[in-house]
Structures are given as C-alpha cells and as structure tokens.
Design a protein around this nucleic acid. Structure first.
Lengths: 214, 214
DNA sequence: GTCTATATCTCGATAGAC
DNA sequence: GTCTATCGAGATATAGAC
C-alpha cells in the first residue's frame, strides 16, 4: 500500500500524495477515524514528513474541504453561465453536481460530511462556502418561480430537497456500478421536474434506459 | 452538564443515561469524535461504570443503531399497514420517516451516518436492517408502478432519490425551526408526486403555508 | 525534504476495593 | 453498581540530525 519508487517523470509529489491519501482514508473512515499515522503509512513516509506540508491535521482537512467546495462551486457556476432558462439551468446544475460527485467522489463526500469536525473560524469559513453553493441552486429555483416556469413553493425547502437527494448520490455511487451517470442525473431530473405520478402528466414519455454501461 | 441528584421518582436509570448521553455526543461529534471519557463526564459517573452497562464502545454504538433502525422500521411499517393505495402509502411512509427524524433526531442521524464506524458482523447486521428499511419504500414504488399510478422508472434509483431527500432532513431540522413538520413533509411529497414544474400540472393548487409554528 | 527519536497527552479497557 | 487506580497502546505534534 505504500508508495513505490518513481520511474516515470510526472509522478505526484509527496505533498500531493499526502493530500490524496488523506482524502482516500477520510472518505472511508472519516476525519476522526483517520490518524496521521494512517496517512503517513499510506503515503510511505514518516509521520513528521506530513508536518512539512501541513501544519496540523485540522489544516489538512481544511485544505481538502476548501478545495472541494470551491471546485464544486466553480464547476456548477461555469456550467450554467451561458444559460438563461431556469429549467435548463436546473438541469445543468443538477447534472454538474452529480458528475462532480462521481468523478471527485471522495473529496466531495469528505466536504459533504465533515463539517462537524471543524471548529471556530474554520467552521465559519466552510459554512460560508456551503451557503454560497446552496445559494446558486436557490437562485435558480427563485428565478424559475418568478418566471412562472416552476410552481410556487418554499424555495429554500425545495432547494434542500433537491440538494439532499443529489448529494446522497455520493453515499452509494461506485464508478463501475450498474447505472450510467447520465441515466442517474436524467432520472433525478425527471423526478424533480415532473414527479413520479402517472396521472398528472399522461403525456410523459415512457423513457426506458438503454443497457449501456460506462 | 453532569447528572444532578435524583428528586422525582421516575428519573432515567444510569444505563438509560449512558445510552442517551452517548446519543447526544455522537450526534454532535460522531462516533470517533466521542470518547468514553466524554460520555462518562456527561453522565456524571466514572468511566469504568460505563463498562458495567456496555462491554465496549462498539457495542454501545451497535445498541444505538440497532434500536434506532428497528424503531424507524416499526414506525413506518405500522403507519402503512392498513393502507392499500400506493400513493397513500408513499405519502404516509414519507411522513412517518420525516416525523421520526424530527422527534428522534439524534438517534436517527447516528443511525444514518455511522455505518462506516462498524466492522465485521456488526456492519453486516446493520446493513441488513438498512436494506430491509429501504425495501419497504421500494415495494411501495414497485406496486405503484405495477398499478399504473406511478410512471415507469428505475425503482431502485427512485427510492434512493426519495430516501436521500427525506433523510437529509436530519441534517438541518431543528425542533423550534421556521417550518412546521407537516409543512415539510407536504412540500417534499408534492415534489416527489408532481415535481416543481408549473406547466405540466396547470391544475395544481397554489397552496401557501400558514404561518403556524409548532 | 525526510529521517530518527521523543515529548506529552488521551484513548479504550480492566483490576479489584467497597 | 460505582468507585479509585492504572495499564498499554496509539494519538498529535515537535526537535534536531542529515
């Protein structure tokens, strides 16, 4: 499990390895379930080497969570930047959120679940990033309601319902699983947009997924 | 924060206090973030006293998670027992899940989030309880699709979408919050049943919540 | 930049008196 | 059933050589 000798040219640096091994371990066991000894063993260095790159375990977590939250925010912001229609914006934002959770699964889950391991200013800082992120989705819901495209509802609650569902994808998604990523986000979108009822939308197509796997 | 002297007659026993203080602490800091010393201090006894009631910290967690999962399963099972219509069943099951997360918030969140702190047979045991619980919801979705009341979809994914959203309630719900419990479950149900679109269900009533708080 | 070595503390758990 | 006392392991973090 430890690092092997470099052979190719652009191997990850030790600093990058510390970061990524910490992400792996904290994804599986959580922050408090992961010791700096575990991280060092996983990287293949002595514990004191970790402290050359990060001043403390808390700092290591902050680095992971900040990076993940900002990457996720950038991804969604850029995805919807050129779109005006709220329905298309929501579709795109949901897809971006889900694909981020798929291809940066571990970072995303750590960012989603380790708020309670932070204290003081660190906690405030990440809460601010989270609120900003939720605000993107809520703004879409609000604008859709103002435009009459979405029915009136408590937009904060509606936002939480959608984000709760699509963030949960990180709790079960596995890269080589049964479902293609597009199928997942399409199905979620259908539920949010039209619900599961058969009667109120008789015109809804009976869309069946192909058997394609990614 | 420690226990004060008993005055009334039916105070909780020490064993019950160990359990409930552990739930409180693990809800706030997680299993690995909570030490047996923390629990003992919170109860107001010495650490060795805890081991008179629970043979290990793992066992204490198992007791909490098993109790919570079984209580949640019983609650939903009993709630839908006399109901035949899948739509009514889903409505009732969602309401039961959300109210359980409201009035047994801490136990529920611990049960929802500490799977990764378990190992071996304990892990298998709780996974079995979780699968059985998800199975209740999936059976409702399946029967609704067979009856033609719900549109065809991947029922496993649909179940996860719904459970993901309503389980997330435990991450933000606070007893004296802005929203009444019934308003929360009604809004979630509306989204699952009919979606957020305005156009596909022009007949949908513009239901506005009263300002009542619980 | 990585090592050896260690300081200091807290962890889960137990022995045994009362 | 609760206490005092303690064990051995493992925690975060640092000092200082190379």
């Amino acid at each position: 499990m430890a690092r092997s000798k470099s052979v190719a040219s652009n191997d990850p640096s030790t600093g990058e390895l510390v970061y990524s091994c910490a992400v792996d371990l904290m994804y599986e066991r959580g922050f408090h379930g992961t010791s700096m000894r575990d991280v060092a063993r996983s990287v293949g260095v002595q514990m004191s080497t970790l402290y050359h790159y990060f001043p403390s375990k808390q700092d290591l977590l902050m680095s992971i969570m900040t990076t993940a939250m900002e990457a996720m925010t950038d991804r969604v912001t850029e995805a919807i930047a050129e779109i005006d229609d709220p329905r298309e914006q929501l579709k795109t934002a949901v897809h971006a959120h889900i694909t981020f959770h798929a291809d940066q699964l571990k970072e995303a889950v750590v960012a989603d679940t380790e708020l309670r391991s932070l204290e003081g200013d660190d906690l405030k800082s990440i809460i601010a990033l989270r609120d900003r992120y939720e605000g993107i989705f809520r703004a879409i819901i609000d604008s859709g309601q103002r435009a009459g495209e979405f029915r009136p509802s408590d937009s904060k609650l509606t936002t939480r319902a959608i984000l709760g569902a699509i963030t949960d994808v990180g709790n079960w998604y596995r890269p080589r699983g049964r479902l293609a990523l597009d199928a997942i986000s399409t199905e979620y979108l259908d539920i949010f947009m039209s619900g599961i009822n058969a009667t109120t939308s008789a015109a809804a197509p009976v869309r069946r997924r192909s058997t394609t796997r990614r």
